[in-house]
Amino acid sequence: MGIRFILMVNKQGQTRLAQYYEWLTLEERRALEGEIVRKCLARTEQQCSFVEHRNYKIVYRRYASLFFLVGVDNDENELAILEFIHLLVETMDRHFGNVCELDIMFHLEKAHFMLEEMVMNGSVVETSKTNILTPIQLMDKAS
């Protein structure tokens, strides 16, 4: 299992999406999110996108006001995770059209559906944006 969790956090440090692929209690999650967000948000643009925290490596990337943080195992390819974050953002862009924080907030379930099509049990399932979005568009049409 490569990916342990995926977080989307805004500039104020508020969680906008959280998906864990390993079980943590609510308290552990809150503590972990707090610590990671504090660490990552304090870093500058020039610094690298990887932060070591406890036994995780956090790969993060900032898009406008939103931070995408992915916690991975230590032997995961950090550069590939960065590329994955970009793919995730592009996918959401294609669906929402210039995705922003509010899109994710108000369409949390859709964001989760997309993530579900991309990652399962911590591994990447699909890398084609069309394949990822087809089931979601189908559902939109049906309802």
């Binding site: 969680t15 906008r16 959280a18 609510l26 999650r29 809150r30 949390l108 379930e109």
Partner: peptide, 13 residues
């Protein structure tokens, strides 16, 4: 349930 998911994300039981 959708509300609960949002509430859970904010860190409430």
């Amino acid at each position: 349930l959708a509300k609960l998911m949002f509430i859970q994300m904010l860190g409430y039981p």
